[in-house]
Write a protein that binds this DNA or RNA. Structure first.
Lengths: 114, 114
DNA sequence: TGCATATATTCCTATATAGGAATATATTTA
DNA sequence: TAAATATATTCCTATATAGGAATATATGCA
């Protein structure tokens, strides 16, 4: 079997650096294809292709305005990635680590008082 | 050009669901290859291959113990993913949104008082 | 209508899988 | 040393890219 399609989910879609760059750019707001392409130094066809992938996984949405196609972010599409990776925060966030230790201690104290 | 290698970075490595499952499992602690394979209903060779990818991108580390190879998580490797996706939190986190609005207002008020 | 601008699609190719099957390697133990 | 257990590697194949080049499609305007 080959690798899963880039359009199978957000995880696969954002594996591509240029697609991440597009999403990051769109945080600022709606942009046309050529605008995106020029800003990120990509050529137009490749930009359109990347946008197609992002649209298919629900990470961007598009509306037409004259000859322009304006793409905007659909950030909620990244929630699954965020949720998954969040459970690993403890491994680099010392403060969070201490908080967890504290909460654990508190919990033990409380269950002891019951 | 083909897609970037799965071993090129954490983003590509975690695009595979089974590799994510392995990482999630290893949050609990060190495990042997067969243990991982059985727990996740994978066969041994495929498990070894996935572990190789994860090791190459620095998401797991291994130590030998007799005939066993014990793998453990190196969670810091996911920090880049976390950092990137964190900037999109505002799009689904209403509370955070309100906090940002509040902070922005506060900032404006303060700069007005200068 | 005809031309310019904006965007999407198609064709092509080198490359890299994921998974199954078989096998190689390492370590322990009888 | 031989058998058993644990793990890694190799071989095979179908599949899906990303990017370049060329072209098709859509829209606006003179």
């Amino acid at each position: 079997m080959a690798r899963a399609s880039t359009t199978s989910d957000a995880f696969n879609a954002i594996a591509e650096p240029q697609r991440r760059a597009i999403l990051t750019l769109l945080v600022q707001g709606e942009r046309s294809v050529n605008d995106i392409a020029k800003t990120l130094s990509m050529n137009q066809p490749q930009t359109s292709k990347h946008l197609r992938v992002l649209k298919e996984v629900g990470l961007v949405e598009m509306r037409g305005s004259g000859q322009l196609r304006l793409y905007h972010l659909r950030g909620e599409g990244l929630k699954p990635v965020h949720d998954w990776v969040k459970s690993f925060e403890q491994f680099w966030n010392e403060r969070l680590d201490r908080l967890e230790t504290y909460l654990k201690e508190l919990q033990e104290k409380e269950s002891g008082e019951e």
